[in-house]
Protein backbone atom coordinates (compact mmCIF):
# COMPACT_ATOMS: atom_id res chain seq x y z
CA UNK A 1 0.00 0.00 0.00
CA UNK A 2 2.17 2.84 -1.14
CA UNK A 3 0.83 6.35 -1.13
CA UNK A 4 -0.22 7.83 -4.40
CA UNK A 5 2.32 9.52 -6.57
CA UNK A 6 2.32 13.25 -6.56
CA UNK A 7 0.51 13.93 -9.88
CA UNK A 8 -2.81 13.13 -8.21
CA UNK A 9 -2.37 16.22 -6.10
CA UNK A 10 -2.08 18.45 -9.06
CA UNK A 11 -5.18 16.93 -10.54
CA UNK A 12 -7.32 17.31 -7.46
CA UNK A 13 -6.27 20.90 -7.38
CA UNK A 14 -6.94 21.16 -3.68
CA UNK A 15 -3.79 20.47 -1.88
CA UNK A 16 -0.28 21.04 -2.99
CA UNK A 17 2.46 20.95 -0.45
CA UNK A 18 4.58 24.02 -0.65
CA UNK A 19 7.81 25.08 0.86
CA UNK A 20 7.08 28.52 2.04
CA UNK A 21 7.71 30.63 5.08
CA UNK A 22 5.82 28.37 7.45
CA UNK A 23 8.22 25.53 6.80
CA UNK A 24 11.16 27.61 7.77
CA UNK A 25 9.45 28.92 10.86
CA UNK A 26 8.61 25.49 12.15
CA UNK A 27 12.06 24.31 11.23
CA UNK A 28 13.40 27.07 13.47
CA UNK A 29 11.35 25.83 16.40
CA UNK A 30 13.07 22.49 15.99
CA UNK A 31 10.14 20.38 14.78
CA UNK A 32 10.13 18.49 11.56
CA UNK A 33 9.44 20.55 8.50
CA UNK A 34 5.77 20.73 9.10
CA UNK A 35 3.83 22.92 6.76
CA UNK A 36 1.24 20.97 4.90
CA UNK A 37 -0.95 21.79 2.03
CA UNK A 38 -1.56 25.44 2.12
CA UNK A 39 -4.12 26.49 -0.32
CA UNK A 40 -4.20 29.86 -1.78
CA UNK A 41 -6.39 28.81 -4.66
CA UNK A 42 -9.58 29.26 -2.68
CA UNK A 43 -8.72 32.74 -1.55
CA UNK A 44 -7.68 33.53 -5.08
CA UNK A 45 -11.06 32.32 -6.27
CA UNK A 46 -12.75 34.61 -3.80
CA UNK A 47 -10.66 37.50 -5.01
CA UNK A 48 -11.54 36.70 -8.60
CA UNK A 49 -15.14 37.08 -7.65
CA UNK A 50 -17.95 35.14 -9.17
CA UNK A 51 -16.92 35.62 -12.76
CA UNK A 52 -14.38 32.87 -13.02
CA UNK A 53 -15.97 29.45 -13.29
CA UNK A 54 -14.58 26.90 -10.85
CA UNK A 55 -13.72 24.42 -13.58
CA UNK A 56 -13.83 20.98 -11.97
CA UNK A 57 -13.30 18.54 -14.79
CA UNK A 58 -11.33 20.68 -17.18
CA UNK A 59 -11.28 19.47 -20.77
CA UNK A 60 -7.74 18.78 -21.83
CA UNK A 61 -6.83 18.89 -25.48
CA UNK A 62 -7.23 15.14 -25.80
CA UNK A 63 -10.64 14.95 -24.19
CA UNK A 64 -11.74 17.94 -26.24
CA UNK A 65 -10.69 16.14 -29.39
CA UNK A 66 -12.51 12.96 -28.42
CA UNK A 67 -15.55 14.96 -27.41
CA UNK A 68 -15.57 16.80 -30.74
CA UNK A 69 -15.30 13.61 -32.79
CA UNK A 70 -17.91 11.82 -30.72
CA UNK A 71 -20.22 14.81 -30.93
CA UNK A 72 -19.90 14.60 -34.68
CA UNK A 73 -21.11 11.00 -34.67
CA UNK A 74 -23.72 11.99 -32.10
CA UNK A 75 -25.00 14.72 -34.36
CA UNK A 76 -25.19 12.22 -37.18
CA UNK A 77 -27.27 10.01 -34.91
CA UNK A 78 -29.95 12.67 -34.86
CA UNK A 79 -29.66 14.16 -38.31
CA UNK A 80 -28.88 11.13 -40.47
CA UNK A 81 -32.26 11.24 -42.23
CA UNK A 82 -31.17 14.41 -43.96
CA UNK A 83 -27.89 13.05 -45.18
CA UNK A 84 -28.45 9.39 -45.92
CA UNK A 85 -27.22 8.72 -49.40
CA UNK A 86 -29.30 6.42 -51.57
CA UNK A 87 -27.81 2.95 -51.66
CA UNK A 88 -25.87 3.41 -48.44
CA UNK A 89 -25.47 0.47 -46.11
CA UNK A 90 -27.94 1.88 -43.61
CA UNK A 91 -30.48 2.56 -46.30
CA UNK A 92 -32.35 -0.73 -46.51
CA UNK A 93 -35.89 -1.59 -47.23
CA UNK A 94 -36.97 -1.42 -43.62
CA UNK A 95 -36.02 2.20 -43.24
CA UNK A 96 -36.15 1.82 -39.47
CA UNK A 97 -32.83 0.12 -38.90
CA UNK A 98 -30.70 3.24 -38.75
CA UNK A 99 -32.21 4.54 -35.49
CA UNK A 100 -31.57 1.17 -33.79
CA UNK A 101 -28.03 1.22 -35.11
CA UNK A 102 -27.48 4.52 -33.36
CA UNK A 103 -29.31 3.38 -30.22
CA UNK A 104 -26.71 0.63 -29.99
CA UNK A 105 -23.77 2.87 -30.85
CA UNK A 106 -24.49 5.90 -28.66
CA UNK A 107 -24.03 4.24 -25.24
CA UNK A 108 -20.52 3.21 -26.28
CA UNK A 109 -19.82 6.76 -27.41
CA UNK A 110 -21.09 8.29 -24.17
CA UNK A 111 -19.00 5.79 -22.22
CA UNK A 112 -15.90 6.67 -24.21
CA UNK A 113 -16.33 10.42 -23.75
CA UNK A 114 -17.10 10.22 -20.06
CA UNK A 115 -14.20 7.83 -19.49
CA UNK A 116 -11.91 10.18 -21.38
CA UNK A 117 -13.04 13.23 -19.40
CA UNK A 118 -12.55 11.35 -16.14
CA UNK A 119 -9.25 9.75 -17.17
CA UNK A 120 -6.73 10.00 -14.37
CA UNK A 121 -9.46 9.79 -11.74
CA UNK A 122 -11.96 12.23 -10.33
CA UNK A 123 -11.40 13.23 -6.73
CA UNK A 124 -13.94 12.55 -4.01
CA UNK A 125 -15.29 16.10 -3.86
CA UNK A 126 -16.02 16.26 -7.55
CA UNK A 127 -17.67 12.83 -7.51
CA UNK A 128 -19.82 13.78 -4.53
CA UNK A 129 -20.81 17.10 -6.09
CA UNK A 130 -21.54 15.44 -9.41
CA UNK A 131 -23.65 12.81 -7.70
CA UNK A 132 -25.58 15.32 -5.62
CA UNK A 133 -26.33 17.66 -8.52
CA UNK A 134 -27.38 14.71 -10.65
CA UNK A 135 -29.61 13.63 -7.75
CA UNK A 136 -31.17 17.09 -7.68
CA UNK A 137 -31.72 16.91 -11.41
CA UNK A 138 -33.09 13.38 -11.23
CA UNK A 139 -35.41 14.35 -8.38
CA UNK A 140 -36.64 17.30 -10.44
CA UNK A 141 -37.24 14.92 -13.33
CA UNK A 142 -39.15 12.58 -11.07
CA UNK A 143 -41.20 15.46 -9.63
CA UNK A 144 -41.73 17.43 -12.82
CA UNK A 145 -43.79 16.11 -15.69
CA UNK A 146 -40.72 15.28 -17.74
CA UNK A 147 -42.62 13.41 -20.40
CA UNK A 148 -45.02 16.24 -21.07
CA UNK A 149 -42.17 18.35 -22.35
CA UNK A 150 -41.18 20.19 -19.22
CA UNK A 151 -37.57 19.58 -18.33
CA UNK A 152 -36.96 21.21 -14.93
CA UNK A 153 -33.62 19.47 -14.55
CA UNK A 154 -32.23 21.75 -17.26
CA UNK A 155 -31.85 24.49 -14.65
CA UNK A 156 -29.38 22.34 -12.75
CA UNK A 157 -27.58 21.24 -15.90
CA UNK A 158 -27.28 24.75 -17.37
CA UNK A 159 -26.24 26.43 -14.13
CA UNK A 160 -23.98 23.53 -13.10
CA UNK A 161 -22.23 23.65 -16.46
CA UNK A 162 -21.92 27.40 -16.20
CA UNK A 163 -20.39 27.39 -12.73
CA UNK A 164 -18.23 24.28 -12.90
CA UNK A 165 -17.16 24.33 -16.52
CA UNK A 166 -17.57 22.45 -19.78
CA UNK A 167 -16.36 18.99 -18.90
CA UNK A 168 -18.40 18.90 -15.71
CA UNK A 169 -21.40 20.23 -17.63
CA UNK A 170 -21.29 17.41 -20.15
CA UNK A 171 -20.90 14.68 -17.55
CA UNK A 172 -23.55 16.26 -15.34
CA UNK A 173 -26.01 16.44 -18.22
CA UNK A 174 -25.62 12.82 -19.22
CA UNK A 175 -25.51 11.55 -15.66
CA UNK A 176 -28.65 13.45 -14.69
CA UNK A 177 -30.60 11.78 -17.49
CA UNK A 178 -29.06 8.40 -16.71
CA UNK A 179 -29.77 8.56 -12.98
CA UNK A 180 -33.25 9.92 -13.61
CA UNK A 181 -34.01 7.05 -15.95
CA UNK A 182 -32.68 4.48 -13.49
CA UNK A 183 -34.56 5.96 -10.55
CA UNK A 184 -37.87 6.02 -12.35
CA UNK A 185 -37.24 2.77 -14.21
CA UNK A 186 -37.31 4.63 -17.51
CA UNK A 187 -34.35 3.22 -19.39
CA UNK A 188 -35.34 2.97 -23.02
CA UNK A 189 -34.01 3.43 -26.51
CA UNK A 190 -34.54 7.19 -26.13
CA UNK A 191 -32.10 7.39 -23.24
CA UNK A 192 -28.81 7.53 -25.17
CA UNK A 193 -30.22 10.33 -27.31
CA UNK A 194 -31.37 12.25 -24.26
CA UNK A 195 -28.02 11.71 -22.56
CA UNK A 196 -26.16 13.15 -25.49
CA UNK A 197 -28.45 16.13 -25.92
CA UNK A 198 -28.45 16.94 -22.19
CA UNK A 199 -24.66 16.56 -22.16
CA UNK A 200 -24.41 19.13 -24.92
CA UNK A 201 -26.72 21.45 -23.00
CA UNK A 202 -24.29 21.35 -20.07
CA UNK A 203 -21.24 21.53 -22.31
CA UNK A 204 -22.31 24.63 -24.19
CA UNK A 205 -23.48 26.28 -20.97
CA UNK A 206 -19.89 25.96 -19.82
CA UNK A 207 -18.60 27.46 -23.04
CA UNK A 208 -20.65 30.64 -22.94
CA UNK A 209 -18.60 33.81 -22.83
CA UNK A 210 -17.61 35.28 -19.52
CA UNK A 211 -19.79 38.04 -18.13
CA UNK A 212 -21.54 38.72 -14.87
CA UNK A 213 -24.49 40.26 -13.12
CA UNK A 214 -27.65 40.86 -15.11
CA UNK A 215 -25.93 40.23 -18.44
CA UNK A 216 -24.91 36.78 -17.30
CA UNK A 217 -28.40 36.00 -16.07
CA UNK A 218 -30.03 37.23 -19.28
CA UNK A 219 -27.55 35.27 -21.37
CA UNK A 220 -28.18 32.09 -19.41
CA UNK A 221 -31.93 32.55 -19.57
CA UNK A 222 -31.75 33.04 -23.31
CA UNK A 223 -29.50 30.02 -23.60
CA UNK A 224 -31.88 27.98 -21.50
CA UNK A 225 -34.78 28.90 -23.73
CA UNK A 226 -32.90 28.01 -26.89
CA UNK A 227 -31.58 24.81 -25.34
CA UNK A 228 -35.06 23.74 -24.33
CA UNK A 229 -36.37 24.35 -27.81
CA UNK A 230 -33.50 22.73 -29.70
CA UNK A 231 -33.50 19.76 -27.31
CA UNK A 232 -37.08 19.06 -28.31
CA UNK A 233 -36.31 19.43 -31.98
CA UNK A 234 -33.34 17.08 -31.79
CA UNK A 235 -35.10 14.45 -29.75
CA UNK A 236 -38.01 14.21 -32.12
CA UNK A 237 -35.53 13.28 -34.79
CA UNK A 238 -34.67 9.92 -33.32
CA UNK A 239 -38.13 8.49 -33.72
CA UNK A 240 -39.27 10.59 -36.65
CA UNK A 241 -38.05 8.11 -39.28
CA UNK A 242 -40.17 5.35 -37.70
CA UNK A 243 -43.41 6.99 -38.62
CA UNK A 244 -45.33 6.88 -41.81
CA UNK A 245 -47.86 9.42 -40.75
CA UNK A 246 -48.60 10.97 -44.05
CA UNK A 247 -46.26 11.52 -46.91
CA UNK A 248 -46.06 15.23 -46.30
CA UNK A 249 -44.65 15.03 -42.81
CA UNK A 250 -42.76 11.75 -42.93
CA UNK A 251 -39.21 10.80 -43.55
CA UNK A 252 -38.87 9.79 -47.16
CA UNK A 253 -35.69 7.92 -48.00
CA UNK A 254 -33.81 9.29 -50.98
CA UNK A 255 -35.95 12.39 -51.12
CA UNK A 256 -33.01 14.65 -50.52
CA UNK A 257 -32.05 17.14 -47.88
CA UNK A 258 -34.46 19.92 -48.84
CA UNK A 259 -37.58 17.80 -48.93
CA UNK A 260 -36.85 15.99 -45.70
CA UNK A 261 -35.93 19.19 -43.88
CA UNK A 262 -39.21 20.66 -44.98
CA UNK A 263 -41.13 17.57 -43.95
CA UNK A 264 -39.44 17.55 -40.61
CA UNK A 265 -40.12 21.23 -40.06
CA UNK A 266 -43.80 20.64 -40.75
CA UNK A 267 -43.78 17.56 -38.53
CA UNK A 268 -42.15 19.47 -35.71
CA UNK A 269 -44.46 22.43 -36.09
CA UNK A 270 -47.59 20.32 -36.09
CA UNK A 271 -46.65 17.88 -33.35
CA UNK A 272 -44.23 18.79 -30.62
CA UNK A 273 -43.51 22.47 -31.14
CA UNK A 274 -46.49 23.18 -28.94
CA UNK A 275 -44.58 21.47 -26.13
CA UNK A 276 -41.11 22.60 -27.04
CA UNK A 277 -41.86 26.32 -27.03
CA UNK A 278 -43.33 26.30 -23.53
CA UNK A 279 -40.44 24.10 -22.43
CA UNK A 280 -37.92 26.58 -23.77
CA UNK A 281 -39.74 29.54 -22.31
CA UNK A 282 -40.16 27.88 -18.93
CA UNK A 283 -36.52 26.86 -18.80
CA UNK A 284 -35.50 30.42 -19.62
CA UNK A 285 -37.92 31.83 -17.09
CA UNK A 286 -36.78 29.40 -14.41
CA UNK A 287 -33.15 30.34 -15.02
CA UNK A 288 -34.13 34.01 -14.77
CA UNK A 289 -35.97 33.47 -11.48
CA UNK A 290 -33.72 30.94 -9.79
CA UNK A 291 -30.42 31.63 -11.53
CA UNK A 292 -28.94 34.11 -9.10
CA UNK A 293 -29.52 32.23 -5.84
CA UNK A 294 -28.69 28.86 -7.39
CA UNK A 295 -25.42 30.06 -8.87
CA UNK A 296 -24.57 31.76 -5.60
CA UNK A 297 -25.22 28.50 -3.78
CA UNK A 298 -23.08 26.51 -6.25
CA UNK A 299 -20.23 28.98 -6.01
CA UNK A 300 -20.43 29.00 -2.25
CA UNK A 301 -20.33 25.21 -2.27
CA UNK A 302 -17.30 25.28 -4.54
CA UNK A 303 -15.56 27.65 -2.17
CA UNK A 304 -16.48 25.61 0.87
CA UNK A 305 -15.41 22.38 -0.74
CA UNK A 306 -12.25 24.20 -1.62
CA UNK A 307 -12.10 23.31 -5.28
CA UNK A 308 -9.80 25.94 -6.62
Amino acid sequence: MTPDPAPRLAHSGTAAATDDATVTSSAVTGGEPGSVATNRAATAAQARGSRQPHAILPLRLRSALVLALVSLVGLAAYTWPFFLTPGAALDNSHGSDAPWFFVALLPLLVAVVVAEISAGGIDAKAVALLGMLAAVGAALRALGPGAAGLEPSFIVIVLGGRVFGRGFGFVLGSLTIFAGALVTGGVGPWMPFQMFAAGWVGLFAGMLPRCHGRVELAMLAGYGAVAGLVYGGLLNLWFWPFGAYSPEVSYIPHAGLGVNLHHYAVFWATTSLGWDIPRGLLTGLAVLVAGRPVMAALRRAARRANFG
Partner: peptide, 23 residues
Protein backbone atom coordinates in the same frame (compact mmCIF):
# COMPACT_ATOMS: atom_id res chain seq x y z
CA UNK B 1 -5.69 20.37 5.71
CA UNK B 2 -5.72 18.07 2.67
CA UNK B 3 -9.49 18.15 2.29
CA UNK B 4 -10.55 21.41 3.90
CA UNK B 5 -7.68 23.58 2.79
CA UNK B 6 -6.07 26.01 5.17
CA UNK B 7 -2.65 25.88 6.75
CA UNK B 8 -1.38 23.44 9.30
CA UNK B 9 1.95 23.88 11.03
CA UNK B 10 3.56 21.36 13.32
CA UNK B 11 3.20 17.61 12.84
CA UNK B 12 0.45 15.10 13.31
CA UNK B 13 1.60 11.48 13.37
CA UNK B 14 -0.73 8.50 13.53
CA UNK B 15 0.75 5.03 13.93
CA UNK B 16 4.02 6.38 12.62
CA UNK B 17 2.52 7.97 9.52
CA UNK B 18 2.69 11.73 9.26
CA UNK B 19 -0.35 13.46 7.80
CA UNK B 20 2.08 15.73 6.03
CA UNK B 21 2.67 13.19 3.32
CA UNK B 22 -0.33 10.93 3.83
CA UNK B 23 -3.72 11.89 2.52
Amino acid sequence: PHFTGGRLTGTVTVAGRSTRDHH
